[in-house]
Simulated scan of single mutants.
Amino acid sequence: MPLDLTRYPDNWTDLAQKVKESAGWRCQCCRRACYKPGEKPKELTRSEWTGNILQVHHRNHQPEDNRLENLLAVCTICHLAMHARGNGNASPGQLSLW
Rank of each mutant, 00 (worst) to 15 (best):
M1E: 01
M1F: 15
M1Y: 11
M1N: 08
L3M: 02
L3E: 04
L3K: 05
L3Q: 01
D4H: 07
D4E: 06
Y8L: 05
Y8S: 05
P9W: 01
N11T: 10
W12L: 07
T13A: 12
D14A: 10
A16F: 05
Q17N: 10
K18V: 02
K18W: 02
V19W: 01
V19M: 05
E21P: 00
S22Q: 08
G24V: 04
W25I: 05
W25L: 06
W25R: 09
W25M: 02
R26G: 06
R26L: 07
Q28G: 04
C30P: 05
C30A: 04
R31C: 00
R32A: 13
R32E: 13
R32F: 01
R32D: 09
R32V: 12
C34G: 09
C34M: 14
C34T: 14
Y35S: 09
K36H: 05
P37I: 10
P37S: 06
P37R: 03
G38I: 02
K40D: 14
K40G: 03
P41Y: 13
P41A: 10
P41N: 08
K42S: 11
K42W: 10
E43H: 15
L44V: 07
L44N: 07
E48R: 11
E48D: 13
T50E: 14
N52I: 05
N52S: 15
N52Q: 14
I53M: 13
I53E: 12
I53S: 06
V56I: 00
V56A: 08
H58F: 04
H58Q: 11
R59F: 12
N60A: 08
N60Y: 07
H61Y: 15
H61G: 03
H61N: 10
Q62L: 03
P63K: 03
P63L: 02
E64W: 01
D65N: 15
D65V: 07
D65P: 10
D65I: 08
D65E: 09
N66T: 12
N66H: 15
N66W: 04
R67I: 03
R67N: 11
R67S: 14
L68C: 03
N70Y: 13
L71H: 08
L71G: 06
L71F: 06
L71Y: 01
L72Q: 07
A73T: 02
A73K: 07
C75E: 07
T76L: 13
T76I: 05
T76N: 14
T76W: 15
T76S: 15
I77V: 15
C78Y: 12
C78P: 11
L80C: 13
M82A: 11
M82I: 15
M82N: 02
M82V: 11
A84P: 07
N87S: 05
G88W: 02
G88Y: 06
G88R: 01
N89H: 13
N89E: 05
A90L: 00
P92H: 10
P92R: 09
G93R: 05
L95V: 11
L95N: 14
S96R: 07
L97Y: 12
L97Q: 12
W98L: 14
W98C: 11
W98G: 12
